[in-house]
Design a binder for these strands. Structure first.
Lengths: 321, 321
DNA sequence: ACTAAATGTGTAATCGGTTACAGAATGAGG
DNA sequence: CCTCATTCTGTAACCGATTACACATTTAGT
C-alpha cells in the first residue's frame, strides 16, 4: 500500500502538505497542490482509514444490530441501511444479536474497540445507554429519549381492521403477536380501536412466538380454540400463510368463507394463491432513513425529527372479499 | 476509553510489560503479571483494535460481499457467516454489490483502507485477483484457483429429476434458470442427465431473470409456450410458487394433475398449500463453512480441501405424487 | 517603502498499540 | 565464586495518518 510519506516524497513536499491538500484544510499553495494531486494520481494513493481513525478516534464505520437477519423482514431493512451507507462512504458492520443481551454487549465492546462512529439497532436497545456514540433505534421506539425510525404500527393495525370492515367481515379473530415483538401491541390496539368503533364482534387469539416451525401448530390451535369466524387479522404474513393453509385444508374457501389479512408484505405474499392481502411495512425505507438519520447525527447535521414514524400501506390482493 | 498507558501506570510497570502480559508474548515476571491483571480488571481495560491494527496491518474484520441481501437465499448464508465470525472474535462487514463491478471495486478499496483480513464473496468474483488478502468464494466456484464453498448443484438437479421420476412424472418441463445465476447450469445439467438416462420426454423452458415481479408472467408464459405436461422442475422456489399459483388458477390440481418441485427450500415453501416439495440448499452451512475456511486461511491453519461442495437435500412435501 | 496580515510549508507531537533492542536481575553449572 | 544463559523489564522506534506550532514568504494597506 502506498503511504502518505511516499506521496510526499514523490511530490517533493512534506506529509503535512499532502494531508492538507487531501483534506482541504489549512493553506496549500497552487504549485504544491498540483504536484500532490499528480503524485496521488500516478501512485494511486488512497489514505489508510485505520491510521486516520486512530488519531480522530472515529471512523467511517457504523454498526447494524439485528435480532435475526434470517427473519425476512430484516434483509430489506439491511439493504436500505447498506444503500445509504455506501452512497455516503460508510461501511456497515453486521451484528446478529438475537435479543441476547450477552451478544449485544459483545458488540458494544467490539464497536468501541474499532472506533465505530454510530450504531443502528433493531434489537432490544436496552444497552443503548452504553453506547458512547450516536445511536438510532429501528422499529423499536421506546419511551426513552432515543432517536428512532419506526413503522406506524398503530396505523397498520387500523388499516387492517378497516380493510376487514370494508370487506364486510362480521366475526373477526384478531391475532395478538407475541408481546415481546416490536410493534405487536400497537398493531393490536390499532385494530381493536377500529373494531370497537364499529361495534364489531371480535375475538383475540394470543400467539406466543414468531418461530416459523410453530406457525402451523398455531394455525390449528386457532381453529380449535375459537368460536366460528369469517375473518382473520393475522399478526404477520407467515401466520397468515399458515392460517390460509389450514383454512384450505379444512375445506373452507378464501375469501368466500373466510377472509384473511396479513402484515409485512413479504416476497411470497403476492405469489400465494390466492394472493394475500396485507399491510406492507416500509422496511427498506426504515433502514434507509435510519441510516440517514444516523449519519446526520454523526456529522452533526441538523435533524428534523427525533422520532420518525413511517406509514404502512394496504396491499389489496385476493384474500379479502 | 482506558489506554494501555493508564494500565501501565496503575500497575507500576511499562506499557511493554502490559502488552506482553496481554498477548502472552515474551517473558513476564510473576509479580508483574499479577499486577497487570489486577490493573486491567479494576480499570476495565480492553485494547483498542484500531491501534493494534495499524501496527499489525491486519484486523479482526472480514468482508462479506453479496449480490443482494434481500434475495431470500442470502440472509441465511449471512447468518452462518456471522455466527462463525462472532464465535471467533471477528466482525463482519456487509457489502451489497449487486453484481455491479463498480460497487465491488468500491469495496475492494474500502476493505484495503480498513486492513480487512479476509473476504468472503458470493458475488461475481471477477475482482478476486485484486484482493491482497485471503479470499473465499461462496456458491460461485469458478474454474480458477480460488478457495470456495458451494452447493453441489449438479447433484441438486439430479435429486429433483429423480424425485419426479419416483413420482411417476411422464411429461416434464425443466425450467432453465437464467444463465448468469450461480449454479443454474449445473442444476439443469444434473436434471437433464437423469431424465436422459431414464429416457423420459422433457421440454426445457428458459427463464431470463430471477426478479420476483417477473415470476408471475413467466408462469403464464410457461403454460402458453409448451406442450402439455404433468411435471415441472422449477428453477427455484419463487418460480415454483408462481407456477403453482398459475396451475391452480387454471383449475388443475396439485399434485394430481400437475406436480411441481422447487429449489431452495425457503421459509414459505413448507407453509404453502400444498406444501412444496423442494431441494433444500444448505445456505447457512455454506456461510458457516465459508467463514471457517476463511478464518483458517487468515490464521494459517491447515485446510483440508480447497474446494468444498455441500450436498443439497430433498424435502418431501405435498406437491409431488 | 514599511509594517501587519494573510498565506504557505515543514518539523514534530500525537493517537494507542506492538516489538526490537539493550541492560539488569536471576539462576545454573563448573 | 565466577561465568554464561535465561528471564525480566523498560526505552524508544514504528505503524500511517492529522494537526499544533514555528517560521518563511507573499500580499495588502497606508
Amino acid at each position: 500500500m502506498v503511504t502518505i510519506k511516499e506521496v510526499a516524497e514523490y511530490a517533493g513536499v512534506s506529509v503535512a502538505t499532502v494531508s492538507r491538500t487531501l483534506n482541504n484544510s489549512g493553506y496549500v499553495g497552487k504549485q504544491s497542490r498540483i504536484k500532490v494531486e499528480e503524485a496521488v494520481k500516478t501512485l494511486g494513493y488512497y489514505p489508510n482509514e485505520i491510521a486516520r481513525s486512530l488519531y480522530q478516534k472515529t471512523s467511517k464505520m457504523i454498526g447494524l444490530l439485528l435480532p435475526d437477519i434470517s427473519n425476512p423482514y430484516f434483509p430489506l431493512l439491511a439493504k436500505g441501511v447498506e444503500d445509504y451507507a455506501q452512497r455516503n462512504g460508510y461501511m456497515v458492520i453486521l451484528g446478529n444479536v438475537e435479543d441476547d443481551e450477552e451478544k449485544e454487549e459483545m458488540y458494544v465492546k467490539f464497536f468501541s474497540q474499532y472506533n465505530i462512529s454510530g450504531v443502528l439497532s433493531a434489537a432490544s436497545g436496552k444497552k443503548s445507554q452504553t453506547y458512547q456514540v450516536p445511536f438510532v433505534l429501528l422499529d423499536r421506539a421506546l419511551e426513552e429519549e432515543n432517536y428512532s425510525i419506526a413503522t406506524d404500527d398503530q396505523l397498520g393495525g387500523e388499516l387492517a381492521a378497516k380493510a376487514i370492515i370494508d370487506a364486510k367481515g362480521k366475526q373477526v379473530v384478531v391475532m395478538a403477536g407475541p408481546g415481546n415483538v416490536a410493534g405487536a401491541n400497537d398493531r393490536l390496539s390499532g385494530a381493536l380501536s377500529v373494531l370497537n368503533d364499529e361495534g364489531l364482534s371480535y375475538q383475540v387469539f394470543e400467539t406466543h412466538t414468531y418461530q416459523v416451525d410453530k406457525a402451523e401448530e398455531t394455525a390449528v390451535e386457532l381453529f380449535e380454540s375459537t368460536r366460528p369466524f369469517d375473518s382473520v387479522i393475522a399478526s404477520n404474513d407467515v401466520y397468515a400463510l399458515a392460517v390460509m393453509k389450514e383454512t384450505i385444508k379444512r375445506g373452507h374457501r378464501i375469501p368466500e368463507d373466510i377472509q384473511i389479512i396479513g402484515y409485512d408484505d413479504m416476497l411470497f405474499s403476492r405469489l400465494m394463491y390466492p394472493g394475500l392481502t396485507t399491510i406492507a411495512q416500509p422496511a427498506y425505507e426504515v433502514g434507509y432513513q435510519g441510516a440517514k438519520m444516523l449519519v446526520d447525527l454523526i456529522e452533526k447535521n441538523s435533524i428534523e425529527q427525533k422520532k420518525v414514524k413511517l406509514k404502512p400501506k394496504l396491499m389489496m390482493r385476493d384474500s379479502l372479499r
